[in-house]
């Protein structure tokens, strides 16, 4: 599904990532873990087209997508969420999800201004589809609220609903459990599993080990910009290198 090979990123002389390679299988939940500063978010920013890597390639379903801008990756059915949820604060919850339908609709500037008949029916379809994603994530009752006023936990759900509206085959989540309480984290675990059941491949960067060990099919461990280990949760838990890396870290 997704294959990164030899990803190296250098920021002004500092090597943030060094020759990182791994494969992610279709339909699995993969966790990317590692101590602070391991380069997890940098890796996500490269895969999702926000940064351009110094060297290395990203293959999405066998296609080389290195250096593609994020909007092109969305059309190839890859989408991501952010650690500090990036909502469209001035818009309603429903409208946020409707923006997610951007690539699944096509009315242009003039069709929209003149209210062409096809743009009206498309608008209806966008609205209905967006509503079903709000129901899927369980926040349909908040549809008309302003997104900027949502509590953090609900905002996280909205961001996931919005990403799902893109119709992804793969979704990258950057620390989805950050800032959530234990009850919300539990609900999130259920939601992520239900997303996988829709045949969407999930990749997450996460600090919450309990969550990672619970839901992930495979885990990739990064440390100091390099891949340290890769395997099933059980293998990772027993890996002496991983244990050493985590014990050496005060976190």
């Amino acid at each position: 599904m997704l294959e990164v090979s030899g990803i190296t990123q250098i920021f002004g002389g500092v090597t943030a990532l060094e020759a990182v390679s791994f494969k992610i299988a279709k339909g699995e939940i993969t966790g990317v873990i590692g101590p602070n500063g391991a380069g997890k978010t940098t890796l996500f920013n490269i895969i999702s087209g926000i940064y351009r890597q110094t060297s290395g390639t990203v293959l999405l379903e066998g296609k080389d997508v290195s250096g593609f801008p994020p909007e092109r990756l969305a059309r190839l059915a890859m989408v991501r969420t952010f650690q500090n949820i990036e909502l469209f604060g001035g818009m309603t919850v429903l409208e946020n999800v409707m923006v997610g339908m951007h690539t699944k609709s096509s009315s242009g500037l003039l069709a929209c201004s003149f209210k062409a008949p096809w743009s009206i029916s498309e608008e209806r379809r966008i609205r209905e589809c967006a509503m079903t994603w709000l129901e899927f994530t369980g926040i349909a009752d908040l549809a008309d609220q302003t997104a900027g006023n949502l509590p953090f936990g609900k905002g996280r759900l909205l961001e996931i609903a919005r990403a799902l509206a893109v119709g992804p085959r793969i979704i990258l989540m950057d620390e989805p459990a950050a800032g959530l309480n234990s009850q919300e984290t539990l609900a999130l675990a259920g939601l992520i599993k239900r997303i996988r059941d829709l045949d969407i491949t999930v990749v997450l960067v996460e600090h919450d080990m309990e969550l990672v060990m619970d839901i992930c099919d495979r885990i990739v461990v990064l440390n100091l910009g390099k891949k340290l280990a890769e395997g099933t949760p059980r293998e990772i838990q027993e890996s002496p290198e991983v244990i050493a890396a985590y014990l050496g870290d005060d976190d």
């Binding site: 989408v79 909502l87 469209f88 990403a163």
Partner: peptide
């Protein structure tokens, strides 16, 4: 409006 509120999030959504 999405671009106005968060350009990067809008781009990620296509």
């Amino acid at each position: 409006r999405a671009v106005h509120d968060s350009e990067v999030a809008a781009q990620v959504l296509g």
